[in-house]
Design a binder for these strands. Structure first.
Lengths: 105, 105
DNA sequence: TATATAGTTAGCACAATGGCTAACGATGCG
DNA sequence: CGCATCGTTAGCCATTGTGCTAACTATATA
């Protein structure tokens, strides 16, 4: 599920859509108006974002209200952070080792 | 630069490579051995990761030492977090508004 | 009921992605 | 020098991604 979040965020237009939605709920038409792309194209991007769990959809009559799903975003950034921290931690150990060597001469 | 980080992380194998590298520096051969994929394929993925700024490369004779670039990872997770927080903040405001309405009846 | 509006689906064209093998360049070592 | 090793490049092919327009479904509204 959240695995697909990265794939979803890989496309610049989809990142723009995410930024748009972070500013508030919007309909397909709203998003289409904001970017110079056809509605079917926006529709497909939104579907992909939804399937990746990044976006939720509430259908109200003939309009769809799209919103961010912060859990998916959190999962994605958590994964990145865990990798980064693992690497940083490793670096600290190497740093300590070099420090130790230096002290010993 | 870091824009491409998401594209780089979009592929499952590249995320696996990142996880491998978060555990320590490795050569192209090391990475190839760990995953059941041909060396040219790994080479291309590493090149992409490098071009996205996610990975750094130090050439030492005929071997290349690949390492994570934590800055790129930090940038990527920061972007996600900022979108998530913007949305959460918005949600809090809406929550307060609804709370206020409830109090007023 | 007729018409407009919101959104999706279908189908097409084209570019990009990702895997492979074969071949190459460059370094290390006997 | 001759050969092995590390890694990249080139070329092929199948698949996926992304944009469009046209056409469709479904809901709202006059």
């Amino acid at each position: 599920m959240a695995n697909d979040a990265f794939k979803a965020l890989a496309h610049p237009l989809r990142r723009d859509i995410v930024e748009r939605l972070s500013g508030g709920v919007a309909t397909v038409g709203d998003v289409t108006r904001d970017f110079g792309v056809s509605k079917p194209t926006i529709s497909r991007h939104l579907k992909l974002l939804e399937e990746a769990g990044v976006v939720s959809r509430v259908i109200d009559g003939r309009t769809h209200r799209l919103a961010l799903r912060p859990e998916a975003l959190a999962e994605a950034s958590d994964w990145i952070e865990s990798q980064r921290e693992r690497w940083e931690r490793l670096f600290d150990v190497v740093g300590e080792y070099l420090e130790e060597r230096k002290e010993r001469g």
